[in-house]
Write a protein that binds this DNA or RNA. Sequence first.
RNA 1: GGACCCAUAGCUCAGUUGGUUAGAGCGUUCGAUUCACAUUCGAAAGGUCAGAGGUUCAAAUCCUCUUGGGUCCACCA
Length: 726
Amino acid sequence: MLNNDSKFLKPYNPSETEKRIYERWEKSGYFNPDNLPQTDKGAFTIIMPPPNANGRLHAGHALFVTLEDVMTRYKRLRGYKTLWLPGTDHAGFETQVVFEKKLEKEGKSRFDFSPEELYGEIMKFTQDNKSATETDLRALGSSCDWSREKFTLDPDIIQTVYATFKQMSDDGLIYRGKRIVNWCTKHQTSLSDLETTPVTQTDKLYYMKYGPFTIATSRPETKFGDKYVVMHPDDPRYAEYKEGQQIPVDWLEGKITATVVKDSVIDMEFGTGVMTITPWHDTADFEIAERHNLTGVEVIDKNGRLTSAAGKYEGLKIEEARKKVVEDLKTLGLMEKEEDYEHTINTCYKCNRTLEPRVMPQWFVKMEPLAKKAIEVVKSGEVKIIPDFQEKIYFHWLENIRDWNISRQIVWGIPIPAKICTNPLCDYGVVYPVEYSEQLDRVNLDNKETKCKKCGAELVKDPDTFDTWFSSGQWPFATLGYPDNPDFKTFYPTDVMETAADILFFWVAKMIMLGIYRTGKIPFHTIYLHGMVRDGSRQKMSKSKGNVISPVEIGEKYGTDALRMALVVGNTPGTDMALSEDKIKAYKLFANKLWNVARFILSNADFKQYDASFNKYTETDQKLREIRHNLIVDITTDFDNFRFHLASDKLYHYVWDELAANILEDSKKIFAGSDGPTRTSRQQFLLHTLKKILITLHPFMPFITEEIWQELGSNSLLMIESWPVE
RNA sequence: GGACCCAUAGCUCAGUUGGUUAGAGCGUUCGAUUCACAUUCGAAAGGUCAGAGGUUCAAAUCCUCUUGGGUCCACCA
């Protein structure tokens, strides 16, 4: 019963099909929930984690796209007013780093440009990548609502971020503090604690004479100007020294006077139990200094060279300075011994250079009050994390949270709408309620205030930008147009936040905290975390290893549906997965199998005779209907519980092992025979089965299922059919 | 230093709240077929579910410990 021009006479051709089908979907307008014919079940919303607009999509993106599209298509078929809101991320520091690498290849540096020029160049670069990203998202079959697409630098998004910043400042949650920050000497910016990578290494621990004491340090080059000597208050070895006692000391720069400080953070077991403190270049020391109200000096500058405080060592790089200082200490007879020891240092997560702890006035967010609420909503079950063990990790992090440095000394980002004092020793800053403008300075500030209230120095516009996670942490409510856009009322709180497990703290926790803070409501009910996509042998994919699977290329080779199935089947939430070309090939064969199942059915039955109310089934077919019904009920439960890896696998086996291998084989006899009622029964069973299988497989394999549906002579789109069970 | 996860066939992984002979894909071996199938079908080999204890009528699944692998967090100079 196939026409001579039927597509089923040829093998399924994904590359010829996919673009055409996608255009048809997009033209239909059904990606936009406002156009859906059936929305009686209420709203279902996923906000897409915006991919960084600084390169093409990789296999990890393909995984998130597949999972979110599976959820979206499922809910749409179930009759929800389904919104999957797409977006792209300017990705602040990340993109600037990528761009700088590009400049380096061209023999240039970011410092060859004025900030305005640099911003413009990166904007061009980002816009190009943004459209490439959109093309890739379409190629993967994303059924997202392009009419609501957002970019993290859209004026309304920035406006929302400013309003949040101002409100937080008014509420005392934002402060400008002089604190130790992680400074990268290459990238010339501070980084948040999350942007550091701890590395264990073996260094020398130097024991040096410091007056009557022996102190141990791994950084002798920072010890200029150390004039406080700290010990534990209960240490019997140093009981004779009293807090505040002045002691003359022969030191690097000659005779100095040291002051005794007692603090219980000192570990009596470590070294000699005594240390001097370097508040400007060590976090622990800085905190001691704060507690005891001690002063310090800057010994290392932003380029990683010693300052004038180091006297004759001024201008030396850290490594050189250390060598020289050690030599000189030996000459002076102040060096007692050195030994190897293992410790952990923080490095830049992008360039792996050792980060220099420096004191700089920066904007911080007070995290404790925000974290408290973020813990509560997960404890109460209002927000659920899948897999659930991630909740423990989430609690652990939030319960030990530290304040968040949100200032970045880079141009590629949202400018901080504030004025700051030009005196480097002063930490005064003032936040303005400003209108964002796309003018050159990008922020219009009130110009009446020109003098620092604290020290009287000049007040200028803060040249820094926000940590990109501060703005993306507001993504769910910002994209939905909080507070006035009706979308906010309809779609917020959203339903699922599906994202990578490794940005739980960077992003997900921030969204919960900022979402609750700003709107009073959680941003989403369920967090679905996926793991990393690795290659077939569990290696991380990387360009240098040559094991990268490009989703778009592989989609062209095997079909996007095959790639999507390979990404879903057997992939449990929160666990890294192995993706091999063999696995994708296997699902290409499955697509072929499905194609031929349809071909067989349609050569033996006409879809025009599909009878929704047919009920004269033979006993055998009645049993087959029950099996089929049970399967669909079962996989529906799987869908509702985010067990996509099981639903997809069960459908695969039903189609291949049950439908193709058994039922179709059996049908051949029936169709060759002359028993009319049995034939009709089987024809109806197969037509119904085909329809139900197409609908239930559609979330996983949208292209081929839609293509078959169209070949059945349907005028409607499969993507808005009704799910076969309630 | 603290926390978390993982260990199942040669490889990569499933196994939903403990419930008959533990599954898939790929790979291997043997056979059949050109039938809807740029193939497919049938069959086979391959697992003391890391190890040791415990709970239970029943454990791959729950508890404890050990070993091995991985991840996250952390201001001990």
